[in-house]
Amino acid sequence: MNTQDPMRICIAGAGAIGGTLAVRLAAAGHQVSVLARGKTLQTISERGLTLHDQHGVTHARPAASERPDFGVQDVIFVCAKSQDMAALLPQLKPLIGEQTVVIPTNNGVPWWYFHREGGRFDGAQVCAVDPQRVLEQAVPLTQLIGSVLFITAEVSEPGVIRSVNPHLIVLGEPSGEMSERLQRIRAAIEGAGIEARATDRIRDKLWTKIIANLSTNPLSVITQGTLEQLYGKPELREVVMQIMRETLLVASSYGARVDIDPLTFMQLGEAMGPFRTSMLQDLDRGRPLELAAIGDAVLEMAERFNVPMPISRAVISLARFRGEAAQLAQSSGAAPATVQAAA
């Protein structure tokens, strides 16, 4: 297969990110299928997906099912929350052949972080995200490629996704190898109108996203603040800065090279405007919060090097309390709040 051949691509999870990938890749001529359920599945089956982004308005009608009956795939993008991975990944087995590449797109520290990491913890377990090694056993680690997505999108109504910012995906082999399969997939994504970069240091980019997520998502749950407020209001910006500093120390302890200028980072974040983080949206809907991968895993990694994270730990604890209260309210029949744009 060369870089111009259409690929069989499955999108497991058809939210804002999965939907964006499905539309762009289908429009580029790839054979795209979507694993979905409930109302999302019904909408895709009846009307397809429509994406409003910087390319204009694009419509696609990918194959959709709640069962993994699409046959063996070339690539599977797993677009699910970290806490949903243990239930989803084992279902993908019928789609995975010897050459299938699986690309998880979730936030936070991935369960495969230490696979072929090459350092003193090579092969170690990230207990916070895979305590029973379910994820590790569900997909052969040799068939994983890491990804870091910088895509802001929202589902404005069933089957309709909107994104006002440029799309960027960074891909990398856990081993750091610049493999042929990595380059082939990068070219396919680039050909679909999404900026795609291949790197031999995927963990550096992971930490950049982890720092952004940890410094804003749990805090947004406590304060109900938008990105504009979190990065712009002095009293919130100071908390964001402290969490960033703590997380940067953890990243550097693991040899990551994170190129972040805090002032520029703050300015760019504030310029994102009144967007609500994905964790704040989950709170509003009474859904479980993605705290294990975004928060607990970083605290676990900090403990290996005795890096104190008092501010991060406190904010994560408060966010967990708010999340559990919201889930309890949801289960008791309280109506979820209206949700604005995703970030």
Rank of each mutant, 00 (worst) to 15 (best):
A36T: 09
Q132A: 15
E46H: 15
T58R: 12
P262M: 10
R257S: 14
E290N: 06
L35K: 14
P174V: 02
A16W: 07
A188W: 01
P336L: 11
I145Y: 00
A192W: 02
Q83N: 13
N106A: 09
P104E: 03
T152Y: 10
G273S: 07
I161K: 00
A36C: 09
I96N: 03
G19H: 03
R203G: 03
N213H: 06
N165A: 11
F121M: 08
I11V: 15
G123C: 13
P274E: 00
C79R: 04
L227S: 02
R24F: 09
S147V: 02
S65E: 14
C127L: 10
N106H: 09
Q327R: 15
G273C: 11
T40P: 05
V240Q: 04
D84L: 15
D5W: 06
T247D: 04
A28M: 10
P6C: 06
L89F: 12
A26M: 05
R67D: 13
I76H: 03
R133I: 11
D200E: 08
G13W: 04
L144I: 15
E157L: 08
I294W: 02
A138N: 06
L182M: 15
G119R: 12
P218E: 11
F150C: 05
W112K: 01
A297K: 00
L328N: 08
E303A: 15
I151G: 03
A326P: 02
A325D: 12
Q183R: 12
A271L: 14
I194Y: 00
P158L: 07
A325M: 08
R285W: 09
N217G: 01
A334M: 13
R61Q: 12
E235F: 15
D53I: 03
Q330F: 11
V170E: 01
Y254P: 06
D122T: 03
D261L: 08
P6E: 13
D130F: 05
R133L: 15
A63R: 14
A27R: 10
G191N: 07
Q54G: 15
G97E: 08
T338C: 05
T264D: 11
I151W: 09
E195F: 07
E117W: 07
F77D: 01
R181P: 03
G191R: 02
A292Y: 12
K39C: 05
V160M: 07
T199R: 02
V164A: 11
L92M: 13
G323K: 00
Q330G: 13
W112Y: 14
P262D: 14
T58I: 14
M1L: 13
Q143M: 05
T264E: 08
M241Q: 15
R8K: 15
L289I: 06
V258C: 10
G118L: 10
R184Y: 05
N2R: 14
G119W: 12
W112L: 02
